[in-house]
Nucleic acid binder design. Structure first.
Length: 170
DNA sequence: TCATTGATTTCA
DNA sequence: GAAATCAATGAT
């Protein structure tokens, strides 16, 4: 029996959850019952209103409201009018944090993985603890990873561009 | 290096 | 209302 991480895992700080997701299994259950599993290989952390690269840095809006909720929610948004991004909300309520799932094993890139998993806006607001079609389970027990800077946030300013908040499974 | 693409946000 | 913005990808 697969074991999902419990709520307390997602209530931790995003800088703990983001690397903690590496090597875990992302489970996608399709409407016709087919189940596919993927190992998470790369994540990025977005942390609080102070983080200029975080969507919530401009305050609470209709779009970012979900990041202010407590952990374990799924946050989906569209970028460049073409690609859905998959994020997991972390941390306590009223502290906007989220982990961007950048890569899964076999699909190298956040736009590609959501296309492969047929993830779209309808997943926004679902909960990883209770969802029947997209959730996490235990994966690799012994992993190592490296950190580097985040991608595609040139607008955020040097202090934030240089944060080593991108985590890559080795 | 450039075109694509549309939801969200900002400015009026 | 209209205009600018954008956590990416694939073709050139």
């Amino acid at each position: 029996m697969e074991k999902r991480p419990d709520l307390n895992f997602f209530l931790q700080d995003v800088l703990i959850v983001a690397p903690g997701l590496l090597g875990k299994t992302l489970v996608r259950v399709y409407p016709y019952g087919k189940k596919e599993k993927y190992i998470i290989t790369e994540t990025e952390a977005y942390r609080g209103e102070e983080d200029k690269a975080c969507h919530a840095s401009k305050g609470r809006t209709k779009r970012t409201e979900i990041m202010y909720r407590a952990g374990s929610y799924i946050y989906i948004y569209l970028i460049y009018g073409m690609y859905w991004m998959l994020n997991f909300v972390t941390g306590p309520e009223d502290l906007p944090q989220a982990v961007l799932i950048r890569c899964i094993k076999g699909f190298d890139g956040p736009g590609k993985l959501t296309k492969q998993l047929a993830i779209d806006k309808s997943f926004n607001g679902e909960n990883l603890i209770t969802s029947e079609r997209l959730y996490l389970s235990d994966g690799l027990s012994d992993i190592s990873f490296k950190t580097t800077t985040r991608v595609g946030i040139d607008y955020a300013g040097e202090d934030w561009i240089n944060k080593p908040w991108r985590f890559i499974l080795i």
